[in-house]
Computed example of a mutant assay.
Amino acid sequence: MKVNYAGTVPLSTVDWRGRAAVTIFFRGCPLRCPYCQNHPYLQGLNLVKLEFVKEQIKESKPFVSAVVFSGGEPLMQKAIIPLAEFAKEMGLSIGVHTNGYYPETASEMVKRKLVDKFFIDIKAPPDDPELYGKITGFEEYESVKKKPEQVTASVIKTLGIADSCDLELELRTTLIRDFIGSKEEITSIAAWISKHMKNEELTYVLQQGIPEHSLQKNLRELRVLEREELYELGKIAKKFLKNVRIRTKESGEEIISGSV
């Protein structure tokens, strides 16, 4: 079996808060979010043998307690199952960064106990397919095959799978000025999560997008949302959810205090 491989961070303390992890990046993604900062990984092939990636994990084992699969979109790769099995055999916890496009693979990993934490992107309100289509590049990029209502249906299904099992769960939204992250949009996302997710211990993170690194050139000149602006948006989300954080370049990860 081959892996469409993008790279490895042998020791990461940012991909799973509170854990030292080896992070494996996969190439390929079915979406084309215009603000994507990992866009070099979105397409193309760099096929390596499964054993090569296993060796990357093995070399980091003495220094980490977890492996994180990221990308790109890791759940689009069949190799994630044998790699997760290998990581479990090594005694490592497994985290998966996903956009929610592949609920069937998420379900298989849960059933086989091959995941300990999901990090799921909620790119826009799940009940607003039109906006979700804009944020995931449906109109701009021919490579996005599913219609927005199909994408949101998959995301909602993945969220349901993650919500139905006793696993750690982080949901996150990346914010770009004048593109996604208005007060109304954050209200809609947080309200949707509050209404539809049973796991009251889940964490919702508002991430500071860096426009200059965007896939789409016309976003690169936008001014980054400041830490203070994200904090105010976090306070809006906090009205609906127990655990809300913001993540910025200036101040790292911060907890939004107060009560729901």
Rank of each mutant, 00 (worst) to 15 (best):
A21H: 02
A162P: 13
A191W: 03
T13C: 12
L175N: 02
L11P: 03
K134P: 01
L167M: 13
L171V: 06
E85D: 08
I210K: 10
M90T: 02
V3Q: 04
C165I: 15
I81S: 06
I189L: 10
F118T: 04
G18M: 10
R245S: 01
K183D: 15
G234Y: 03
D166H: 14
L222K: 14
F119M: 09
M1R: 13
Y102L: 10
L114D: 04
L167S: 11
T173N: 08
T105M: 14
L45T: 12
K78L: 12
L167A: 11
K49R: 15
L225P: 11
E250T: 10
T203S: 12
T187H: 13
T98L: 07
K195A: 11
N243E: 09
N4T: 08
D163Y: 14
L11A: 07
K88G: 03
K111M: 11
H39V: 08
G7W: 00
Y35L: 05
L225E: 03
Q216P: 05
N46F: 10
I186R: 03
I189H: 01
N199K: 14
I186K: 00
A162T: 09
L241F: 05
T23A: 13
F118G: 02
G44P: 07
P10N: 04
K157N: 13
L222I: 11
I24L: 12
K147N: 04
